[in-house]
């Protein structure tokens, strides 16, 4: 085994450790909050605002006296939940689009792909901002905008995979055997697509979290008092100089989740690549 391969193995090990540690921290925090503390995320206590960490408020309180840890954990559920919803919708719309375009070809393919090109011509953030502006700010509209931008990636990727694979002899032989288009899709093409989709999805997952958070930060996504991380960042902005940790916590949370999503993407890519080196 070469030096390079060895160091890559070490990096992989380090990544697994990283994921385990982050998951452990999250689990410990969840357990702590829900076993010992029963704070309402929106319960204000102005007398105890901007408090330092105490036993009751392990990460202190924000400018309205709300418990930061509780909000952070609820924010995890919201942010991750929202991006999963957006992601699932994008995949569910994009994959069939790509399959049909790739397998049918002809004018259907051209029509689908011109629509996709139209969406691709704008940067994600710009479309999201424009749509939020048109439909009004709010998490629902933001998710709609994200789905609208993201499905194109899946449709295009699936289509290109289908186009390269259907020309290969094994698909021709399946056709000679009289396998239906659906069976060919399910048995022969899906294994090629599923890995790619999962890898792209796990990378997109991080991007969508960033997009939701950044648009919530500028006030176009989740509205106060929703404890979404980007919105939390936005709310703590005026108190940045006196209480910087109020911004650090949601910021760190975003970094951690995006990191985990990316490492997961790498892991899935290795997992679905059957051609990887067989472990000695």
């Amino acid at each position: 085994m070469s030096v390079l391969a060895l160091s890559q193995k070490r990096i992989k090990k380090a990544k697994v450790w990283l994921i385990s540690i982050i998951l452990l921290i999250v689990l410990a925090a969840v357990a702590y909050t829900f076993l010992y503390l029963k704070h309402d995320a929106n319960m204000t206590d102005v007398g105890n605002r901007l408090a330092s960490p105490t036993q009751a408020h392990p990460l202190g309180t924000d400018h309205l006296g709300r418990d930061v840890l509780t909000r952070l954990l609820l924010g995890f559920r919201l942010t991750v939940g929202y991006s999963l919803i957006a992601l699932a919708a994008a995949v569910i719309i994009g994959v069939p689009f790509g399959l049909i375009a790739g397998l049918r070809g002809g004018w259907i393919d051209r029509l689908f792909m011109r629509i996709a090109d139209g969406f691709l011509a704008f940067p994600d953030t710009v479309i999201a901002i424009v749509l939020s502006g048109l439909l009004g700010p709010g998490i629902g509209n933001l998710l709609f905008a994200i789905v609208l931008v993201k499905w194109v990636n899946y449709a295009r990727m699936v289509r290109s995979t289908v186009l390269t694979e259907v020309r290969k002899d094994y698909v021709t032989i399946a056709r000679i055997n009289g396998l239906s288009t659906f069976t060919i899709m399910r048995k022969h093409l899906l294994p090629h697509i599923i890995g790619n989709v999962l890898v792209l999805a796990s990378l997109d997952f991080g991007k969508i979290i960033l997009l939701i958070s950044s648009l919530s930060y500028i006030g176009l996504g989740a509205q106060p008092p929703t404890p979404e991380w980007g919105a939390m960042l936005n709310e703590s902005r005026p108190y940045f100089q006196a209480n910087p940790e109020m911004m650090v916590y949601p910021g760190l949370a975003i970094v951690a989740v995006v990191l985990v999503a990316n490492v997961l993407g790498d892991y899935l890519r290795d997992k679905f690549d059957v051609k990887k080196e067989v472990q000695p």
Binding site: K168, D169, Y170, I173, A174, N177, G178, H192, V274, K275
Partner: peptide
């Protein structure tokens, strides 16, 4: 039935040999 020139292209790289072999039988 048929056998083509290029054996690599004739087998789906994502399927185990078992599944490729059973394709016509299952059909």
């Amino acid at each position: 039935q048929t056998v083509f020139q290029n054996p690599t292209a004739s087998l789906n790289p994502k399927l185990k040999i078992r599944d490729s072999l059973l394709d016509p039988y299952l059909q």
